[in-house]
Amino acid sequence: MRPVMTFALMTLRNLLRRRTIWGISIVILIALFGIGQIPGYGISNEGRFILDFGLFGLEIGALLLAIGLAANIYPRDKEQKTLMPLIAVPLSRGQYLMGRFIGAAMVQTAAMLAGCIGLMVILLMNGLNIPGDLFPAACLLLVEGWFLLAVVFFFSFWTSPPLNAPLTILLFILSQMPVSGFISILPRAQGFMRILRLLLPHMDVFHIKDPIAHGVGIPAVYFLLATLYGLAYMAFMLSMALAVFRSRDLK
């Protein structure tokens, strides 16, 4: 475990010293600030819009962070030949993947936490109460973010960074569609489309902005189930990524 955690901390320091993360964080903060202005323009005198758009912003932020943080890590390591001495001697491929993943996940956690706190501050500045489920909802979005991070790592082992981003975004969109909607993309291949959709993740389990914005309580057991589901899918994607990585020759 020591090599993995050391490598995760190396990754964390590496990502923080590069500028990508700061760019994404600034975009999220600007988006939150913009959302905070909505009631001021008289669209609503309630906090519903702030919560709804704020959580939506965090959801998109999780996606952007995953792509921005992880899409380029492996290709850069390979291109700059920093991968070779690491894999040749101190690290196994599994340790490399887990170290990079945990490092990127730590940065993502910090950024999402900052986003959640930012949303709370905006609610307070507008004289609104902070719903009790807001923090658990943000945690679910963080689990979604980790899952997306695993997806980006998986794609990064067999595609280029310019292809990784659209593929991840496509998966993000398709994974929120109901089966009926997914089938309507290709109605002639109904059976195939049904099976394909049911194999894709159900990312709607992570999205609870609607009940929170409308003040509907969420049972605690649901948070637990959705978190376990997200972590299991993340583990599945990481195992797939490692299987691809292990099959690769490092020329």
Binding site: M10, R13, N14, R17, R18, Q80, K81, T82, M84, P85
Partner: peptide, 8 residues
Amino acid sequence: NPDYEDIF
């Protein structure tokens, strides 16, 4: 032609 994480 070795290369390492150059920010360190």
